[in-house]
Amino acid sequence: MSTQTSAPTTGQPAGAAHNPPAVGRSVVFRIKRCQGPGQASYWQDFKVKIPQNANIISCLQQIALDPVTTDGTRTVPVVWDSGCLEEVCGSCTMLINGKVRQSCSCLLDAIAPNEGDVVTLEPMSKFPVVRDLWVDRSRLFHNLARVKAWVPIDGTYNLGSGPRETPQDQETRYVLSTCMSCGCCLEACPQFNKEEKPADWDHAFIGAHAISQARLFNTHGTGRELAPQRLEVLAGRGGVNDCGNAQNCVKVCPKKIPLTESIAAIGRAVTIHKIKQFFGA
């Protein structure tokens, strides 16, 4: 079922990294397409002559220039989501050879160094497809609101600086704060499933990213004001206890965020929160 972490990547046999990539080679892109919600998916192959320093995006751009499949059918350009192309915005996340990652930072020299190598592209499976490789990740942002992932400031007027912070605490928070809401951790998670209806979002597993953001704000001097409310949500249905401890999330996180540490920390905090509640503290 979950091919994200275990499937070997096509075109990257062991030791391939030692061979210089073939100059002027052509690579086949096998792309899973879908013309819209409720429509059937199908595969199309495109042959692309690989430019120097190519990433997946530059290959998709080449296909868009004149989309003709390997069997000679002229078709419509592939639809995909992208933004910064520097792996800081999270937009262009997709399954590349079965593995979830950003397509901008996926270089062809690394994954398809040989003539005729095949690269498969699929939309993320845990979110509804809008069209082709573009998925609707609204739920991911909705879940940030569920855990009130913000600092409850008193408004934007001049009230002096924020709380002082040790460099160590800053370091911890900074790493957590580099989460770009790409959804890799959710795609790889066996407990996080596709929920088409927004009405179900509040009961389904919230996901590693939101748990980690709760930790981020619970750690902040002012942000911890809302910690009980966050923990209440995370103690409930779809909260931290739904984590099955597969630890896939931390393996696929492109920003190397210690997601499992966050889950453990929040798990402990939820327990303490519940004990306090039990004793009416």
Binding site: G162, R173, F217
Partner: peptide, 14 residues
């Protein structure tokens, strides 16, 4: 800067 600091932006620290 003060406001961003209050919002929790993790500015590097001395």
């Amino acid at each position: 800067i003060d406001l961003l600091d209050r919002m929790g932006v993790p500015f590097n620290r001395t």
